[in-house]
Structure formats: structure tokens, C-alpha cells
Design a protein around this nucleic acid. Sequence first.
DNA 1: ACAGGTTAGTGAACATAATTCACTATGTTA
DNA 2: TAACATAGTGAATTATGTTCACTAACCTGT
Lengths: 224, 224
Amino acid sequence: MSLSTALISVDLVAFKLASNNRLQVLTHQLPETPLLQLPAGRIDSEQDQSLQDTAKRQLERFTKEPATYYEQVITIGDNHRDSRGWSLTVVYYALLQPSDEQMLSEDSRWIDIVDGKPAEPLAYDHSQLVMEALARMKNKIQYSALPIYLLPEAFTLSDIQNVFSIVLDKAPPMRSIRNRFINSDLLINTGQKRHGSNRPATLYRANANSNNWLFDRLYLTTRA
Amino acid sequence: MSLSTALISVDLVAFKLASNNRLQVLTHQLPETPLLQLPAGRIDSEQDQSLQDTAKRQLERFTKEPATYYEQVITIGDNHRDSRGWSLTVVYYALLQPSDEQMLSEDSRWIDIVDGKPAEPLAYDHSQLVMEALARMKNKIQYSALPIYLLPEAFTLSDIQNVFSIVLDKAPPMRSIRNRFINSDLLINTGQKRHGSNRPATLYRANANSNNWLFDRLYLTTRA
DNA sequence: ACAGGTTAGTGAACATAATTCACTATGTTA
DNA sequence: TAACATAGTGAATTATGTTCACTAACCTGT
């Protein structure tokens, strides 16, 4: 049988750095269901101009915090993931800036990523989807400006290193991060410093007009 | 209105190196239609276990030559590409080895890529899809074993450089290609040579068991 | 005021891989 | 057998990440 249609859903893997120094993924729980699941939903032909709009709407169902970055990961289609037959799932991931305030809906929760997967089991194949999105993100973070999207407006170079530590479980040397980011035009010195119980660190913000979003090599400390 | 379904098609951008030293893309023409178009079709829930199966079937409709490589590029969904409303298109590209014999169906043709786009106009947004696939392929060729997939069973290092010349309009120095590929375990010396009107060149074949499919940097001569 | 602690940041030597270029090697062809 | 053309090597240079020792700046406790 040839199909002109199939069940379509757009699933969103939203990542955020939490104050416990963990990467977290947004989940929610439906009433009467035992397992947490990813935000997912169908295309709304009225509201959505694109698939990314659909992904964005899924995020907005559970939090008011906007994502700083969206990327389509993969589209999975097969006939065994949904008992009703052929199903098609477009997977996006999104990056959010850290936030203390919980602008979350009641039924949703940020779950830690531990050892490369969600710390709690997810419904359907959602753990697998998280892992796919995470793999993509872990790769891209090594040769792009991605780390910045997981940080607040103003951040230090150490914050960038911290992103690597959390996401990759290891980080390039500060010297390497410094060289790369300072030599690029990705950062703008805010003129401000972050003060702690030590020498204050320079605070930077992202340069929206940068043309160095991609680098042409990976850090050596992080490759396979 | 919320949709559980939409029109879905899988579109295939099949690339091949032609004897005129051009990259070509497979197209076909339906009767009564003025423009060429890409192989595309719907999921067949009986035959297709995955979306790649669907892509593969599209290729097989027009040629018996198998592809050596498939990669999903992007899924595009919106409400203006098809007059019937929301449509969803999963785009794949495939790489084929060069071939003299034409095992093509009557209605299909390989079209040159000139200046980064098909030399002839294509129907719908298919030129755009070719360009998206080409962009992805041009990037990946610079840090992976991809060039090999566009070459015949046995090939020389110069052939690899030639792939770069054709696909990117410029190529890394032979010394760089040599160092990279010889130091990896991607190539197996067949022991044979290709003879011309000059010093014979060593013929290699791909090592299927290589674990160096990806490199950790781009060639400098080819970057932006 | 000032010493000690802690993190931020710099300078210089080293490592790795691409690039450049001069040079050698090995075949075909006139 | 010399001319040629392309294959392939060796060594210096360049670019960028890594390592490590050292300096800088601020806070804290006395």
C-alpha cells in the first residue's frame, strides 16, 4: 500500500544547563501515564509556517523561556515505532539559556542528563531521540559558536570551558578556548567583570554579527 | 486546524561524476510536463522499512546502478510549496560511482551541475533542494571519506584530488591529500597501477573496515 | 596593612597536520 | 635514448591547538 500520508509528529529535545552543573532536558508527564516524555505534537497548518515553528510551539507549551537556538536533527520514519502503522517523527533540538526562575507549566520537568542519557526513563523511543540530539550537539559544540547559546547574556571564558566540561565530560585547555574565541570576532567585551573571591573575570556577550560561527578544526582533547 | 497528517514525499538528489568532468544529478521528465524533476515519491508502507528505503526505491525507479552512500539532508515542511496545503518533503542525497554504461530508464537524464546548480531548470523547488544537498556534500567531503564514494572500485590519489576539483572548484594540494589518506587506514593498495603516458599511479581501493572515516580538520585551501 | 588563597590571564616552547616547493622516480612517446 | 608528463618524496614553513611556568587581580582573615 502506498501512502500519501502518515502520522507526523515534531519532537523537541530542549537542553539547558542547570545550576547543579548538569545538562538537562525538558520533559512532561501526561495524566494517567507512568512515564515522562518529550514535548511533541503535530503540525498546526494555521499557526506553523515551517517545521521549526512547530518545534517552537512545543517548547512554548511548557515554558515561557525562549530558546536561543534550534536545529533539526533527523527525521525518523518506520512502521514499528507506532502501533498504528507508519509514523514519521521530525526531531529538533533547542538550546536555552540558564534560568533560575521556573516559568514551567505544572506538568513539566527538567531532567538531568547523566552518562549521556536522561536520568529517568522516557516513554516511547524518546530516550533514543535525546541521545541522537545530544550526539549531534556534542559534535557541533566542538567546532562552532554553540557553547555560547547555552550561556546567559554575559559570560566569561571560564563559563565556556564549563559548558564543555558539562556537555562533553572533558574540556579543552583554557588556553585553547581563549585563543580560539578571542581571535574570532564572536565575543564582545562588555567592559564589566564578574567578581568572586579571586581575580575578576572579563564578561563577554555574543556578537550577533560575527562571521566566525564555524571553526575549521576540532579541539584535540575532545575527539574520539 | 491541527493536522495529524500531511502530504509526504521523499526526494532524492543523486550525484555522480560524469566523464565530462562534471558533477551530475539524476532527473527525469514526466510526460506532458515541461520541466525535469528529481526522483521523488511516497512512502510505501509495505516495502519500506525506513525513509532511506524510500529514497533508495526512488533511485531504483530510474537506474539499476546502486548508490554507494545515502545521507538524509533535511526535512522541509511548509504550507506554500504545494498548492494543496501543508506538505512535507524529506530530502536525501546519494552518491554513485562513475559508470559508462547507461542503465537508465528512458525518461530519466543525468544533468550537469554548473556554477553550483543544475544546468537546466527543475520543477517545483527542486533546484533549491539540489543546492541544499550539494552544500551539505561539499562541506562533508572536506573532512570525511566521502570523495571515495564518488570514485570507482580502484582509484588513484589524483582521482581523489580530481573529485575535489570538480565538486569544490578547487582542490587541496596533492601533498595534503596524500598525507591525510595515506596516514589513515582508508586506502588499501591493490598492488596494481594505472598506466598513462607517464609514471604509473598506484591504484587503491576503499578499506571497508576503516575507523578513520572522519578527520578532525578541514583543508585550509577549501574553507570560506 | 598585608599575607595567603584562588581564579584570570600571558608568554614561550612544543606538537600536529596542512602547505609550499624543490627534487627525484618511472613510465610513454617521438 | 632524450623529452615529456605525471607520480611521489623530503624538508622548510605556517597555522593552530597544547603544555606549563609565570604574572595579575581580587577577596579574606588576621
